[in-house]
Structure formats: C-alpha cells, structure tokens
Computed example of a mutant assay.
Amino acid sequence: MELLPIHTPEGFDPLDLLKPLAAALAGEGPAVAPHALPDQVFEGTLPNDEIAAVISTSGSTGTPKQTMLSVDALAASASGTAFALRAEGQWLLTLPVHYVAGFQVLVRSLFAGTQPWVMDRSDGFTTKAFTDAAAELTDRVRFTSLVPTQLHRLLADPSPETLRLLRRFDRILLGGAPAGAALRALARSHDLKVVETYGMSETCGGCVYDGTPLDGVELRSVDGRLRIGGAVLADGYLGAPALTEERFAFNSGQRWFVTDDAGDVALDGSVTVHGRLDDVIITGALKVSATRVADVIEALPGVGQAMVLGVRSEEWGTAVAAAIVGDVDADVIRQAVHVELGAHAVPKVIVTLDAFPLLPGGKPDRRTIHSLLEHA
C-alpha cells in the first residue's frame, strides 16, 4: 500500500488536497499524508489497502504520532456527523488540513458532495479573514469547525457583520480543547448554534457531540479513564506496533482506544469529560482539579481564558499555577478560588498574557505556557 506525503506549508491551497483525497477514499489512489514540516518522515508500512489517510496528532503534550485512518472509519465519522447535525451542507475551513479537524472538513465535504470554502490564513486566524470567508458561502446549510481560541477572538469585540455571519451557521463545531464556562455563556448570549465536540485524531476527530456519542460510537469509563469504541477508530499508529497494541486494546472481542482523559458515562450513554488525567494536581498531598480551578477563574468578569497547570515547588512538591488572558486583579482570582474550592486550590503563581501561545492547529501550547509559569 502506497503513501502520498503532501507538504502543506503556509500558502498551501487546501483545495489541492481534494483530488488525491477523493481518490484515496474511492480506493483508486494512495493514502494521503498531509504534513506541515518539510522534513517530515513517515516510517513504517501501511497494514492494508483500506488506509485512506495518515494524520499526525497535535503533539500538544508530547511527540506527535502518525495515525492511520481507514476509508470505513472516515465514512463512519462523516455519516455520524451528518446524522448528528441532521443535515449535510457547505463547510468553511478555518484550520490547517494537516490536523484532523481541518482534514475532516474536506472529508465531510467530499461525502456530502458540497464545495468547501477556505479562509485566508496568510496572516493567521483573524476576525476579518473569517468574516470575509463566511460571507462567501452560498449554500443554504452552512457549517464550520473552530477551536475555542478562535471563537474567543471572534467574540472579543465583534462587529455586527461578524455576529450576523456567525449566527448564519446552522452549527459551529467547537473542539480541540475545553471551551470554558465563560466562552459557552458568551456564545449563548449571541444566539450562536455551538456544538461542543470531543474526540481526537485516533477517532477521526470529534466523536461525541454535546455529550452524545455519534451513531455507532460507544464510550466506557474504566477506573475513571475514558475508552472509545466503534467504527470511527483508527487502525493504529504508523510504524509503532507496540504503541498501537498499548493504546488500541481489545476487550470482550471489541477494540477500544484508551484515552488520556477522565470522564463518566451515564446509563443512557451520555458522556461527561472531566479533563485530562494529568489535569489533577497533587499539591501538599491534596488533589486539585485544574479544570475546576480554570472554570472558576473564567467565570470572573474581565477574564477571557484561563489555563491551570502544576509547576514544581520546593514547599508544595507541585504548586497550582494559572495563566490568564484578560484584566483582573490576582487577589480577586485567589479569593474566588478560595471561596469556591478551598485554600489548597488557590493558585500560587498567576501570569497574565495578552494571548495564549498557540500550536499551528489553534490549540493552546501547553508546554510553552507551562514553561512560562515555571519561570514566573
């Protein structure tokens, strides 16, 4: 089975990927492997002729892995999305296509037979570029996929035209990172049809929409860790059989992807994601949920975004630290966290940033933020 690496640097037209992707999905061409690095190496052999794409994970918390996605998995994801959204329509692409969320915009468009529109990313993600691109959509049914940082920027000081076009979308998929209570409330205040998604490259992107798994997707919580099963699962990692065996485990005759996320699954199948397992900070022998601390901070007036991480501390072993985007006094933050969660959860380190450093796919760069907090 052949693999077709496709370099997607700044200035690459994502629509140039449509033809080879269509051939791969039809079984008439090699699997496509979009990548941003000019020296990207693909080591290993594809296990079968059903692989249509190799997509690298974001690498937000470690070394990126090259995930093998089959025709059937991508088809199951596209059909599940159409069923969940109750329509197929025209998509606006705002994310790089070498990340699964951007790549899936092209996949869904091909299965739906619609023409995607591409936002100009030559200056990165800007409100003007998004507004200009959204104005070009022509279909009656319209979708887009954003990460929380993008939506935060769009709603920071929106023009009437930007809001009009945002409301025009039948659904705005929001994923890649937790949205946060403040952003969710802001989106509701503007009557935006936001759907929060949960998933990863190993599940062909989002596989849980507003807490409900897509058709054919099942989740289980094993000792508090989420596992995902169903037709959307990847075939594993290219050139990494040991890691594939570890993360794609068989149980009761079914294959499950073992995530790094904590969560609960209700009797009706609905899913609550609590955050990454490593978001639990043990400070002074007490456990602190970084996600809950961030939610408290983001609920404060003047705070746009918050990320809470653990940093090394001689006194505490690990200390709670918070990076925020916004304008709020540190004492106000400490007081709010103390009241809501207790003294042990109060951040010992607080850093205010103009904006979070981002990975190319739009996710906050956790490692860079952690370094900033460590050296504050």
Rank of each mutant, 00 (worst) to 15 (best):
M1R: 13
L3R: 07
L3A: 10
P5I: 06
I6N: 06
D16F: 04
A23F: 12
G29V: 10
A36T: 11
P38D: 10
P38G: 09
T45G: 03
P47Q: 06
A52K: 06
A52P: 04
S60W: 00
T61Q: 12
K65Q: 14
Q66Y: 01
A73V: 06
G80A: 01
F83H: 14
F83V: 12
A87V: 03
W91P: 03
L95G: 02
Q104A: 03
F111A: 05
A112S: 14
G113L: 11
W117E: 14
G124F: 08
F125G: 03
F125K: 01
T126R: 03
T127I: 06
D132M: 12
A133H: 03
A134D: 04
P148G: 13
L151V: 05
S159R: 02
R164C: 00
R171C: 04
I172Y: 01
G175W: 03
G176Y: 07
A179W: 02
L186P: 03
V195W: 01
V195M: 10
Y198I: 00
G199M: 01
E202R: 05
G206C: 06
D210E: 11
D210R: 00
E218W: 00
D223H: 10
G224F: 06
G224I: 05
G224H: 09
G239L: 07
L243R: 11
T244C: 08
F248W: 08
F250P: 08
A266L: 12
H274K: 15
R276L: 07
V288H: 07
S289D: 14
R292A: 15
I297Y: 04
P301A: 02
G304Y: 01
Q305K: 12
R312C: 02
G317Q: 10
A319L: 01
A321E: 03
I324L: 13
A330Q: 08
Q335S: 13
V339Y: 08
H344L: 01
D354R: 12
P357M: 06
L358E: 14
G362A: 08
P364W: 03
P364G: 11
S371F: 11
E374P: 07
E374Y: 02
